[in-house]
Amino acid sequence: MADSQRTSEPINSVHQDEIWKARVNAEKRSARDWPKKWGILTEAYEEYERESKKLNEEARRKLPQDPAAQPPTPVEEHIDVTPFPPFPKTSQGMIGWLVGHSALQQENFRMQRHGRRSLTKNLGWPRDACI
């Protein structure tokens, strides 16, 4: 669009036509040479499609014909469901009501205590080595 608005430079239509011909020839050449260079990709893709169809057919055979005929799997088989303690009757009882139950306790985030160890002491370095 910007090229068509320029009037100061003359347009060489023969040169533009040669550029277009070169592009078209490059496209034709690459289309002709593509199977030689990259044809293995089509073979791998066709093999993948065959395996995919075979696996889909096997999966369909394993599924029951009527999905409503199969009873749903109970949740207890997959998840450990423990009875939940009763909800407290007062707002004061809500503070820490789950702490007393070991199965419902959350993680404790407290300071980890480590012994007095020193890297320099373990490696036998002098104290001034890391200063």
Score class of each variant (00 low, 15 high):
residue 1 M to V: 11
residue 2 A to S: 12
residue 6 R to Q: 15
residue 10 P to S: 07
residue 12 N to R: 05
residue 14 V to G: 08
residue 16 Q to G: 01
residue 16 Q to F: 04
residue 17 D to V: 06
residue 20 W to P: 00
residue 21 K to F: 08
residue 21 K to A: 07
residue 24 V to A: 11
residue 26 A to G: 02
residue 27 E to D: 10
residue 33 D to P: 00
residue 34 W to A: 15
residue 35 P to D: 04
residue 35 P to E: 03
residue 38 W to H: 15
residue 41 L to Y: 07
residue 46 E to A: 03
residue 47 E to L: 06
residue 50 R to K: 11
residue 53 K to P: 00
residue 53 K to Y: 01
residue 54 K to T: 04
residue 57 E to C: 04
residue 58 E to N: 12
residue 63 L to A: 13
residue 64 P to N: 06
residue 70 Q to A: 09
residue 72 P to L: 04
residue 74 P to Q: 04
residue 75 V to K: 15
residue 78 H to C: 11
residue 78 H to A: 14
residue 82 T to G: 05
residue 82 T to D: 12
residue 87 F to M: 12
residue 91 S to R: 09
residue 93 G to L: 00
residue 94 M to K: 13
residue 94 M to G: 12
residue 95 I to M: 11
residue 96 G to Y: 01
residue 99 V to L: 07
residue 100 G to N: 07
residue 103 A to L: 08
residue 103 A to I: 03
residue 104 L to N: 10
residue 105 Q to K: 11
residue 106 Q to M: 11
residue 107 E to K: 11
residue 109 F to R: 15
residue 111 M to K: 14
residue 111 M to T: 12
residue 112 Q to C: 06
residue 112 Q to L: 10
residue 116 R to K: 15
residue 117 R to K: 12
residue 119 L to I: 10
residue 120 T to G: 06
residue 120 T to R: 09
residue 121 K to T: 03
residue 121 K to D: 02
residue 122 N to I: 03
residue 128 D to R: 12
residue 129 A to S: 13
